[in-house]
Design a protein around this nucleic acid. Structure first.
Lengths: 150, 150
DNA sequence: TATTGTTATACTCTATAACTATA
DNA sequence: TATAGTTATAGAGTATAACAATA
């Protein structure tokens, strides 16, 4: 019969295997996202901004918080996207310091197309699972997300 | 009874939900990896290089292929890591053009510590699942990975 | 005084093109 | 000629510190 220490050791090894597969899946997913972004001539962060603003209008600071970036980083990011006509700034009339950022019509179209492309490019991965297993993994990942840090 | 078109539409919606949860999980995982990298004063790419070289010795070009980067990008990346004593270069005696890259003792230690930290920081996510569910998600993700593009 | 956003600065990451050395 | 790697260059992403405008 295994000791308690042996059981814990076995659990740690199993957990390491799970971590490895999560990390590998994440890199594979990021490779797809980078590819989609590159096809739109965007960086991954820019694509992410479009995705975040798909159903929201946010201040610079809020956007920075969503992305986990410093607010000073947002200025250049938004500058470049605005110059390309993908999003726009507007001063908040209620607070003269704040600036709202939101998608232009072009930006909204790019966001939609990007979303579709991502689904299409991930299909080879998700398609290895049966419909029932796809549903299972969705439930399990959603549960994991509820415990995410940050 | 739903038409075939209706069934396909429903399947597309379900697939979009699955894609969203995969993407969100990937961003949460990447946030953890970035945090671990930052604690070691490394970029995500540098941490990834250490992880790749944990059990391998690779040429510059092979390393570039693993990372999906241009070989010219590797020069600076390896330069900086070598300067910090984390990895080393050695000419391949069999081919005077090739350069092998491998971890130093310090680099190997950093790679181990990083690996442990990642497991620890992901534990709040993985820990939301029972041991049995952890095993299930591992199996399902591994199956998905077998269909990854690239 | 505190908050919002921008600017100035510096460093890293990244790709393209041109180059050197070797095969 | 083709391949392995580096260098030169340029643009984007990022953070820190200092700043202006507003609250």
């Amino acid at each position: 019969m295994p000791t308690s220490a042996e059981t814990e050791q076995a659990a740690a090894v199993e957990h390491a295997d799970l971590v490895d597969v999560i990390v590998q899946t994440s890199f594979a997913t990021m490779a797809v996202l980078n590819r989609v972004a590159a096809e739109h001539d965007l960086s991954l962060t820019q694509l992410r901004v479009l995705a975040i603003l798909r159903d929201r209008r946010l201040r610079m600071t809020e956007l920075a918080r969503y992305l986990g970036l410093d607010k000073s980083t947002m200025t250049g990011l938004v500058d470049r996207a605005e110059k390309r006509g993908l999003l726009r700034r507007a001063r908040d009339p209620a607070d003269g310091r704040a600036v709202d950022v939101f998608l232009s019509a072009d930006g909204a179209r790019a966001a939609e197309r990007g979303h579709e492309q991502i689904a299409r490019l991930l299909a080879p991965m998700t398609g290895t699972l049966s419909r029932a297993d796809q549903h299972r993994v969705q439930i399990l990942l959603a549960a994991m997300l509820s415990g995410r840090p940050g």
